[in-house]
């Protein structure tokens, strides 16, 4: 592979190749009964880790465990648990 001289990535969409799930120490768990599908967590999640729906579905390959979703959910449908529990 030859790098371009500028700090440039010429092929778009390659953030998918970077599975940030391995960074996680806390894991968001959705309570499917409480989730009303408002989509706020999907909007604020910094990774492509949440699929909209009722309930939302979290893709743990990309979820890095930042906890923004749990913090922003208006009905407290997401709790952060220690990785390895449950």
């Amino acid at each position: 592979m030859k790098l371009p001289p500028s700090t440039i990535i010429l092929k778009p969409g390659n953030s998918e190749q970077n599975e940030t799930g391995s960074w996680r120490s806390l894991k968001p768990v959705v309570d499917s009964k409480k989730c009303n599908g408002c989509g706020l967590c999907w909007l604020y999640c910094p990774e492509p880790a949440i699929t909209k729906g009722k309930p939302v579905v979290i893709d743990y390959r990309y979820c890095k465990g930042c906890g923004i979703c749990a913090n922003d959910c208006p009905v407290k449908a997401i709790v952060m648990v220690e990785e390895g529990q449950k």
Partner: peptide, 27 residues
């Protein structure tokens, strides 16, 4: 040669992780 153009998206000023940083500085 590397136009910032919404029709042809590219990433400019990307992160240079340790595997790449030194090559960019050498260039």
């Amino acid at each position: 040669p590397y136009l910032l153009d919404p029709e042809k998206p590219i990433t400019m000023g990307a992160v240079g992780v340790p595997e790449y940083y030194e090559e960019f500085r050498y260039m």
